[in-house]
């Protein structure tokens, strides 16, 4: 969606777009505080107890980390292509992102399954409790991101080029969804470092 297309839709639409991005930004602020609270609990619980026992996490989680980081990059490429009005390229990169997202979810399920098979569940040790709760909570937020990207995907497939209304409808969920997705990718990197290197 190029600048000329936006301006055709008038100041109200531009304000609406700003509001939606602002709303997502504020929401991400509260999510940051949520994971900040868990992080401080992780530090306190870990440093004040005798029963802390670090669990061994499957090494393919690092591969999964790479998957979500690459998905973030591909989504950014999709967003930029959409912004430039190149919807074919946007569609390809968005499709790539969705495939990578599913791959990440698959990896996540496999990690839980792997731990389960090793006899490690939520209450096994404080470290496993934090691992399951934090990754689970991250996955819940990721589902919201996936829903937004799904909407974006459906709209990108039906977008009519040079129709500002249709272009905006396709671009908006992609752009707002990208904020969430980039945030969650960065959050994942933070979580995996905390849960492995500071276990």
């Amino acid at each position: 969606m190029n600048h000329a297309a936006t301006s055709q839709l008038g100041p109200d639409v531009a304000q609406r777009d700003f509001q939606l991005h602002l709303g997502m930004g504020i929401f991400l602020g509260t999510v940051t505080m949520l994971f900040g609270a868990f992080s401080s609990a992780y530090i306190v619980r870990g440093s004040t107890s005798q029963d802390w026992q670090a669990i061994q996490l499957p090494s393919f989680l690092w591969l999964n980390t790479l998957v979500i980081v690459i998905s973030s990059i591909s989504l950014e490429l999709a967003r930029r292509a959409g912004k430039a009005g190149d919807w074919r390229r946007a569609g390809i990169w968005l499709g790539t992102t969705l495939v990578l997202a599913m791959l990440f979810f698959g990896g996540q399920l496999a990690a839980w399954e792997w731990l389960w098979a090793a006899g490690i569940s939520v209450p096994s040790t404080p470290h496993s409790s934090f691992f399951f709760i934090l990754t689970g909570l991250h996955a819940v937020h990721l589902l919201a991101g996936l829903a937004l990207l799904g909407v974006a995907g459906a709209r990108v497939m039906r977008v009519s080029a040079n129709d500002p209304v249709s272009e905006r409808r396709a671009f908006l969920p992609m752009s707002v969804g990208a904020m969430l997705w980039h945030f969650l990718a960065a959050l994942w990197v933070y979580l995996i470092i905390m849960l492995t290197l500071f276990a």
Binding site: G29, T30, V31, M33, A37, V122
Partner: peptide, 29 residues
């Protein structure tokens, strides 16, 4: 409110797990 409430959300989630899932975030030895 936006900055402070998530701390209770985190606490409430952990408390629910202590109550129903056998974890020990807040239960002393």
């Amino acid at each position: 409110g936006l900055l402070a409430f998530p701390a209770l959300t985190a606490g409430a989630i952990m408390l629910l797990f202590d109550r129903h899932a056998g974890t020990a975030f807040f239960l002393p030895a």
